[in-house]
Amino acid sequence: MPAPTHFETAPKASDLFNQCGGAELNALSDLDLASVPVIDAGGAEEFTAYIFADNYFELYVNGKLLAVDPVPFTPFNSNVVRFTATRPVTVAVMMVDWEENLGLGSENNQGKAFHAGDGGFVANIQDAKGKTVAITDATWRAQTFYTAPLHDRACLVIDGQARDSSACSTEGVDDGNGFSAAHWVVPADWMMPAFDDSFWPNAVTFTNNTVGVDNKSAFTNFVDVFNTPGADADFIWSSNLVLDNLVLLRTTID
């Protein structure tokens, strides 16, 4: 797998839409929010996070792992997580774009044995009254820690904390010989409130069409929360939606 995860041991996020034996709601109005367990992240103020992740996420609040994606790869699903916390609330998300060719950041797709997949994360976080207090946008911080496949390592440009693979090829091939990958050490405290993310780049936003969710019920059934008028959440990632496979995201709710 592209990264060490807590999929086997951590609580799974509650379903909005999950074709792998979970709930398959047709709309947000079908959700019985009171049935969703409230996870204690410290404090008494209640929040609800609505999440769509491609492929896999782990959600931390004020340094505590609250829930992980119940479907690590596909079919695509969406989730809801309720929690209590004290402001300022540090929200940290580990995003993993899964792979079938381990260590090569690729999968058998679109007629090629080695084809790079893509990612994407969108979320709307609301308070107990249903008011949006945070959405995914360019104010989040995003850093990549695994980039692959690299056809030519020279394409990767590293300048301080900028890890730019935009010049790297995303073409799928049938022979992955010669592919390589770039890894960076993940800080042990990356999810903690005291972690200094000011040196990380800002997240890059992507359109729904670029991520390709217009035909995915896990997203389209809930556009009233993901595309809320006046609080329209963007899909976010690092600078390369295709080649960056382990991306850490952070924001703070004041």
Rank of each mutant, 00 (worst) to 15 (best):
V81P: 01
S14V: 06
T139Q: 02
G43H: 04
C155F: 01
Q161N: 13
A134C: 12
A142C: 13
Q110E: 14
Q143L: 10
W190K: 02
L249V: 01
R141C: 05
G230L: 11
D232Y: 09
N245T: 10
G172N: 06
S166W: 01
D164I: 06
P37M: 12
V133G: 05
K131L: 10
V122K: 13
D164S: 05
K12L: 14
A203M: 07
V157N: 11
S106K: 04
A128K: 13
H115L: 00
V242A: 08
S198F: 05
A85H: 03
E58W: 02
F76V: 09
M95Q: 11
L156K: 04
S169F: 08
K64M: 13
W98V: 12
P229F: 08
S165I: 00
M1G: 15
R87T: 10
L104N: 08
V68L: 07
N227S: 14
F52W: 13
L156T: 05
F17W: 11
Q143I: 09
Y146E: 01
T205K: 09
S29Y: 11
D189M: 02
V133S: 12
V36R: 05
A123G: 05
T48R: 12
L150H: 02
G176F: 02
A154P: 03
A10P: 05
S217E: 11
S238L: 01
G42Q: 11
A162E: 14
K131N: 15
G120I: 02
A134M: 14
S238G: 15
V38N: 14
I135M: 09
A188D: 13
C168G: 06
T210I: 14
N79I: 04
R250H: 01
F235I: 02
E8T: 10
A154I: 08
A128L: 13
L16W: 08
L249K: 01
P75W: 06
F73P: 03
W237N: 02
V185T: 14
R82Q: 10
A162F: 11
I39Q: 12
N240E: 10
F57R: 03
Y50M: 11
F206A: 07
N209Q: 15
K129H: 13
D164T: 03
P75I: 04
N245Q: 14
R153S: 14
V157T: 14
P229A: 13
D175Q: 07
P149C: 03
V93E: 00
P149G: 03
G119L: 09
Y56K: 04
D40C: 10
D15N: 14
F219G: 03
S106M: 00
S169A: 11
F206I: 07
L33M: 13
N124V: 10
L33N: 10
F83K: 02
A23N: 15
V89L: 09
P149I: 00
D234H: 12
V61C: 03
M95L: 15
G230M: 09
E171H: 05
V204W: 05
A194Y: 09
E24A: 11
F57N: 05
T48G: 10
D244L: 05
D197I: 01
F121E: 03
W140C: 03
K129L: 15
V211E: 01
S239E: 08
H151W: 10
A182S: 06
W140E: 00
T251E: 04
G160M: 09
D224N: 14
I51L: 15
A203D: 04
T228A: 15
L31C: 13
A148C: 06
D174A: 08
I39W: 08
A231M: 08
A85V: 03
R141T: 06
P88Y: 05
